[in-house]
Design a binder for these strands. Sequence first.
DNA 1: CGCGAACATACCAACTCAGTAATATGCCGA
DNA 2: TCGGCATATTACTGAGTTGGTATGTTCGCG
Lengths: 128, 128
Amino acid sequence: MFAVMATAFEVLAEPVRRQILDLLRERPRSVGELTEQLGLTQPGTSKHLRVLRDAGLVRVRPEAQRRWYELCPEPLAELDAWLAPYRWMWSGRLDALERHLNTMPSGSDTSAGPAGHQQIDPESEELP
Amino acid sequence: MFAVMATAFEVLAEPVRRQILDLLRERPRSVGELTEQLGLTQPGTSKHLRVLRDAGLVRVRPEAQRRWYELCPEPLAELDAWLAPYRWMWSGRLDALERHLNTMPSGSDTSAGPAGHQQIDPESEELP
DNA sequence: CGCGAACATACCAACTCAGTAATATGCCGA
DNA sequence: TCGGCATATTACTGAGTTGGTATGTTCGCG
């Protein structure tokens, strides 16, 4: 019947839902507003919002027929907590200040977007 | 033919894959070792490792018949970058907010960034 | 009171994905 | 050279998800 409450990881695997959170980070929005921004149908938007609501990532505030959805970022702490033990690994060589800058918008590595392709061994497989 | 490289979000939506990374965080492991730890079949483990490899999250080092998988945490920076603008919201500690404010008052790095401003449409206002 | 706006839900088709079994490949030792 | 070990790949199946259309439901307004 009702799906078990999904983790923030599963919920955020969907790009559209991340986009919704990004939009709500700016300010609360109505369903119609989000629908237009996302380029989906209204029911599609409602369904994504339903998932986000079930995961506790957004909260709804009704006002007449309009529903204002606002961000509820606490479950994101789950993401952050899982990520914490890894964070030193890719920023470990930097001192604290640079490490912090690394987590913020800074133009040092904007070339390929956020974490594109690293120095993965190009041919880690044996060739015939 | 080749699936488009999945984002770290999509790859980590699977609990088993997060577990694999957690195991590899300790030390590199062989497929058989991971299979035993995860309680999966060997092909199942190999398929998850394949996904992780395609996403650049693990690297493989062959040694005879054995393949040693090791962590490759750089793509996790994508997660961290997306998370960054949200982090101050849930951490009730003012510590995070304080550091956040302390690192960007000069506005030197407000121009752009990997995760600073996503595709939020700035002129999204159309409410009559 | 009835109509329309705003939103939710139900239902449906297409797709993706995890798991398993069967099979293929490469490497070592006897 | 042959057999066995470690791993990869493929084919298949069943379950879950996404996005769309159609259909309610609630509320404000003329």
